[in-house]
Simulated assay, not measured.
Amino acid sequence: MNSIQADPFVRNEREEQIASRSDRLAAIFAKRASLHDREGSFPFGNFDDLREAGYLKLTVPEEFGGEEASLYEMLLAQERLAKGDGSTALAVGWHISQILQMRIKQSWPRKLYAEFCREAAEKGAMINQFASEPSTGSPSRGGRPQTAAVKTEGGYLLTGRKTFSSLIPILDQFTVTAFVEDEERVGTFFVRKGPGVSIDETWDTLGMRGTGSHDLLLKDVFVPEDERIDSCEAGEGAAAGTGMSDHGGALLHIPACYLGIAWAARDFAVKFATEYRPSSLQGPIAELPHIQQKIGEMESEWITARTLLYSVADRWDRIPAEWAFMRPELGLAKTVATNSALRIVDLAMRIVGGSSMSRSLPLERMYRDVRAGLHNPPMDDSVITMLAQRAIRECRECK
């Protein structure tokens, strides 16, 4: 029985096709992952394969030639892709999740939105939004960007530095947040690579080394007035739609990625345990009680985290009216998944033993990669605070 047939979260033929494509791509990426990790190089070849397979149009609306995947379907695709290479999955996850958010918010100018979606579907154009900065940290903490947007004839001039700019080596366009001096508020701008845009190759990290998350430098970069994203209200020059916020739904691509890495580590450890037979034993180490204990603990963590992630995604897809209320659960799904992934990979290394630290095996890379999940939004403390505040609010409203 293959992994798709055995996976209870693959519910129909369309989801099976989405999962199968990711499995095929993951098998290819797994062969390259070690080299890109060692070199800290960006996996351009992986993105050629993603484009050729049609993966880059996964969440693009059908009207523009895309697959219009639901959140649930996006997570299925991402989790399985990460089994091959976590860096590639996390990086492309920012692209497909941004397009999912665009589809929901419908805040882009109508013409720009249609043009980009067609480019994404037909040519594999990609996008990401850059908001983090050295002095303000994660935008989820509410810091005001130091990147400035100054009004000029016909548009704006943007100057600043963005950090954690995943995908920047391969992007021809992206969106950035900047403080609009004349308005005393933050704006969002569609920027194309060109004069004034450069990359400072700062990305040299413990894990997720292949995401290409270098610093982006902007120096008097001109953005036309009609390519400012946030200034266009839905239904008034914007793409027709609800103008809704997804309240963090699209960010579930993050926990899906880390669970995919953990899934690969789990598979590696279980296979090792069933095949490794030291001379001191009659059978493989999988027959030892303490090894079975660790395998059982991995299964407990993995099943619990996946069940929460997919149940939350299914509810999010079915009941948009509850999105605002679900925000704490969305955050909880992320924190449970990333912390479970850490535990699963740790257990996998304990099962394999000292050889798990060898760079000739994938576990030490997986161990480093899953740690990055602690630093992706939302953070653990923010999620706990959201859960507490909601419980307190509900208690007061019941009085």
Rank of each mutant, 00 (worst) to 15 (best):
R161E: 14
E299I: 05
G207P: 11
D182Y: 05
G241N: 07
R371P: 02
D7C: 10
V336G: 03
E233K: 15
A121D: 01
M74A: 10
S140M: 08
T307A: 12
P8A: 04
V197H: 01
R141P: 00
R327D: 12
L76V: 13
S34D: 10
A240E: 15
L374C: 06
A341I: 05
P139W: 00
G207Y: 03
S165Q: 06
A6F: 00
K334D: 04
Y258E: 00
F9A: 02
P43E: 06
E115L: 05
Q106P: 01
K151W: 02
E299W: 03
L332H: 01
G84R: 10
I199E: 13
P284Y: 15
W108I: 04
Q173S: 11
E184D: 15
R306Q: 11
Q5E: 14
G143L: 08
S97G: 09
D182R: 10
R141M: 03
F116S: 04
H214I: 07
L112M: 06
V197Q: 00
A121W: 03
P145D: 11
A114M: 00
P8N: 02
E299C: 07
A33K: 12
P320Q: 10
K219C: 11
D23G: 09
V180M: 07
D215L: 02
G212I: 11
R390H: 03
L330M: 09
S340N: 01
H214Q: 13
I295S: 13
H214G: 09
R161L: 14
R118E: 05
M357R: 06
L216K: 10
A286Y: 15
G354T: 11
M244R: 14
L330C: 00
C395I: 03
V180C: 06
A391S: 15
R365P: 12
Q173V: 10
S107L: 01
K151H: 05
K31Y: 01
P43Q: 02
W316D: 00
P328Q: 03
S22H: 02
I199N: 07
G196S: 05
E297C: 06
G241A: 12
E225W: 02
P8S: 06
E52T: 12
L218A: 10
R24L: 10
A91N: 04
A89C: 00
G187I: 02
A262F: 05
Y258V: 00
I127Q: 08
S20A: 14
A250R: 00
G160M: 08
D85C: 08
F9W: 02
S356H: 04
E329T: 02
L35R: 15
E322L: 15
G65Y: 01
V270E: 13
E236Y: 01
P278Q: 12
A19K: 06
G283D: 15
R318K: 15
A27N: 08
I351F: 08
L281C: 08
S356C: 05
L100P: 02
K399H: 04
S135A: 08
V223N: 09
G155L: 01
R327K: 13
N128R: 09
A6C: 07
L171V: 09
C257Q: 11
E397Y: 03
A178E: 04
G155C: 04
G243F: 05
S87P: 07
Q129S: 12
Y156K: 00
L58K: 11
I392H: 08
R359K: 09
R141K: 09
F189P: 05
Q146L: 13
F190W: 13
E233P: 13
H253W: 03
L281T: 14
R24H: 09
G194N: 11
G207S: 10
P224S: 12
